[in-house]
């Protein structure tokens, strides 16, 4: 089953995302910020990265830029978890190389249906 790296500084969001994805059979690894996520990404290649935008240490936009520098992650789908109010954040994410976004708040069903758009 496909592997997913879930990045969010909010433990509740991260747990919700991880729980939902694991329930759907994905292999999920959690990371609490961009720095941790980048380290994990270098350790192993994931099929998809889901990342929050506003995070300490390294935010989601910087994370995408860094990921796209890695040969393994040149084409791996990266989705940003963002809020409606952040219209320009979507564009920043796209420009940094993100595949797309999921708008918060979202429920588990929406998350899974969105993930189908980039996996499988």
């Amino acid at each position: 089953m496909a592997s997913i790296l879930a990045v969010d500084d909010s433990a509740s969001m991260r747990q919700m995302v991880a729980f939902t994805l694991k329930g759907a059979g994905f292999d999920v690894k959690e990371a609490a910020d961009g720095v941790a996520a980048l380290a994990e990404a270098k350790r192993r290649k994931y099929d998809l990265v889901l990342s929050d935008v506003n995070m300490p240490n390294m935010n989601g936009i910087e994370l995408v830029k860094e990921l796209r520098q890695l040969p393994d992650y040149k084409f791996v789908p990266v989705l940003m978890l963002t809020t409606e109010s952040a219209g320009d954040v979507k564009m920043q994410g796209k420009q940094a190389g993100a595949t797309g976004w999921i708008v918060k708040p979202f429920n588990p069903e929406q998350l899974l249906s969105t993930i189908k758009r980039v996996l499988g």
């Binding site: 500084d9 909010s10 509740s12 969001m13 919700m16 506003n54 995070m55 300490p56 809020t83 918060k104 708040p105 979202f106 429920n107």
Partner: peptide, 22 residues
């Protein structure tokens, strides 16, 4: 940092159904 904290609370509250908070 302040913004990020508020932002996270809003996002989580919305996701977990606490509309008053979000």
């Amino acid at each position: 940092t302040i913004f990020r904290a508020a932002h996270s609370i809003k996002g989580g509250a919305g996701t977990f159904g606490f509309v008053q908070i979000s």
